[in-house]
Structures are given as structure tokens and as C-alpha cells.
Simulated scan of single mutants.
Amino acid sequence: MSTAAEHRLPLVLLHAFPLDSRMWDDVRAVLAEEVRLITPDQRGLGTAPLVAGDAAAPDADLAVVAADVVALLDRLGIERAVVGGASMGGYAAMALLRLAPERVAGLLLVDTKSEADQEGPRQARFDAATRIEAEGSADWLAAEMLPKLVGAATHATRPAVVDRLRGLIDAQPAAGIAWAQRAIAARPDSTALLRDAGLPTLIVIGEQDELSPPETAERLVELLPQGRLEIVPDAGHLVPMETPAAFLAAVLPWLAERRGL
């Protein structure tokens, strides 16, 4: 027997790097009242293993993550879903659109961007992956990333968010972090993919986001036939954790318009 939740709009939310699906905890309950919410851990992070049994690790490629999501949708009996992601999760959503466009009914892109890394940032990711494999990440990765992961307002007024983020970063397996770094570095530019897909797309960006700046999102949304942009004040690169009420205020009306897809 099917439940009422199974007839709601399916929404897949993919998490940021180097976190896991707990980043959605502050918005989970409200979203779950409106949609069929699916928040997997990316392979190698959170509770998701990097490999099954004694198999070799797959090549570091977000297409692998996209294939994992397709397999999950198959297990749940879901043909099409709105697919969303924050930061790395947005890159994975674009990889899913590239792999299986027929499974994507709309896109919710949060604090992410369509461009590939330039050579300098790409090499920095490879170098970080090598360092993580050599010495782990608990003693340095959070300290290095936190200054830019959240906005100035969060650092000044929401210390609990910063502390929680530090704990999430420190909890991730080193092998999964290194694999994700290499997969992000290898991603292609997805600007033309998003433009040509013509899907309903909501872009949510923190006003203080240094990693995916609002001006980058403004240029992208102009290319999207059904694109919409929401810039959230007093937030940086992780809007759902920094200002969950503002995130929900931006997202819920757009999701309501997607009912029936």
C-alpha cells in the first residue's frame, strides 16, 4: 500500500563538501511536510561506503555519484525528481542531468556554480587530496575551510553553526574526502548543459558567499529559460545551515509551483 508521502513531489538533496546529509537537518522536517524528501550521503562520506566489500575504488568522477542517485531512484520506484544540491551537491546534480536527463524534473542549485575549476584551484584540490591521504584531515581541513564556508555574519553571530560544521568536517572519512576532492576537480563545465536543458531551475546563493559569488549566479540565471535567483542576506556558502528559515522562504514557494511535474 502506498503512503501519502509517496505521492508528493520527489526532491533529492545532495550535500556539500566535505559534509554529509546532516547538513539538511535544520530544514528537513519542514521540507518533508511538503515533498517526498530524499537526502543520501555521497559515497565515501557520512554513512555511505566508498566501495562495496573488497572492490576497488572507482575512478574519482561525479558521474559515479550521479549513477548512485539513479540507482537510488530506481530502488524507490521514482521516475523523475527535482534534484537539488549545495556546492559539491550542485555539481553532482549537474552530473545527474548529464547522465540521465530524463530523470530530472527541475533543479535546485544552492551555493554552487556551473563552471569547471581553473588550473590553479584544480591543482589545489589534487594537492589537498594527496595530503589528506598522507596525514588525514582532522587536524587542519576544517580550520582551512571554515573561514570561507560560511559568511561573515555567521562567524560573528552564529558560533554554534561554525562549531557544528567543524564537527561534521572532522567526522568524514579521509578516503572519502580525498576521492570527492579529485571528483570535483575533474568536473566539466556545465553552463551549456544547464542552458540547453531548459528546466525549471532555482538558484539560491548566500549574499556573502565567496566561493560561489552572487554575481556568478546572476550571469548564469540570465542564460536559463526557466531560471530564478534568490540571494539570501547574512549567509555565505551554506545557506541551509546558516539561515534555514530564509532558505525555506526562498525554496518552498518554488517547490509549490513544481507540484504535478
Rank of each mutant, 00 (worst) to 15 (best):
residue 73 L to V: 09
residue 89 G to K: 09
residue 205 I to N: 09
residue 202 L to Q: 05
residue 141 L to W: 05
residue 40 P to C: 05
residue 200 P to C: 04
residue 18 P to M: 10
residue 105 A to C: 09
residue 114 S to Q: 11
residue 71 A to T: 13
residue 126 F to N: 06
residue 161 V to F: 01
residue 195 R to G: 00
residue 244 P to F: 04
residue 64 V to P: 04
residue 220 L to A: 10
residue 53 G to C: 15
residue 177 I to R: 09
residue 187 R to Q: 14
residue 110 V to T: 11
residue 219 R to V: 09
residue 203 I to F: 01
residue 73 L to T: 13
residue 19 L to E: 06
residue 61 D to G: 08
residue 222 E to Y: 00
residue 145 M to S: 14
residue 223 L to P: 00
residue 99 L to V: 03
residue 168 L to C: 00
residue 23 M to T: 04
residue 55 A to E: 15
residue 256 A to M: 03
residue 165 L to T: 05
residue 144 E to R: 15
residue 178 A to Y: 09
residue 42 Q to Y: 01
residue 110 V to D: 06
residue 249 A to N: 12
residue 181 Q to N: 15
residue 216 T to P: 00
residue 22 R to H: 06
residue 158 R to L: 11
residue 166 R to K: 14
residue 117 D to C: 14
residue 51 V to D: 08
residue 256 A to E: 11
residue 70 V to P: 08
residue 255 L to H: 09
residue 178 A to C: 13
residue 102 E to C: 02
residue 24 W to M: 03
residue 73 L to M: 12
residue 86 A to Q: 12
residue 43 R to G: 09
residue 160 A to S: 07
residue 4 A to W: 02
residue 126 F to L: 15
residue 167 G to V: 01
residue 92 A to D: 00
residue 48 A to K: 12
residue 155 H to T: 07
residue 164 R to C: 00
residue 162 V to F: 08
residue 60 A to Q: 11
residue 44 G to C: 12
residue 74 D to R: 09
residue 250 A to T: 04
residue 180 A to S: 15
residue 250 A to I: 04
residue 167 G to Q: 07
residue 20 D to N: 14
residue 36 R to G: 03
residue 179 W to T: 13
residue 144 E to V: 10
residue 209 D to Y: 11
residue 198 G to C: 06
residue 211 L to P: 10
residue 251 V to T: 12
residue 58 P to T: 12
residue 30 V to I: 02
residue 199 L to S: 08
residue 206 G to C: 04
residue 210 E to P: 01
residue 12 V to N: 07
residue 103 R to H: 08
residue 183 A to D: 06
residue 124 A to H: 08
residue 122 R to C: 13
residue 44 G to N: 11
residue 13 L to S: 10
residue 118 Q to W: 01
residue 32 A to G: 15
residue 159 P to I: 10
residue 118 Q to D: 13
residue 146 L to V: 07
residue 213 P to T: 06
residue 26 D to I: 00
residue 67 A to L: 12
residue 7 H to R: 15
residue 220 L to Q: 06
residue 241 M to Q: 14
residue 35 V to H: 02
residue 39 T to K: 05
residue 25 D to I: 00
residue 165 L to I: 11
residue 183 A to R: 09
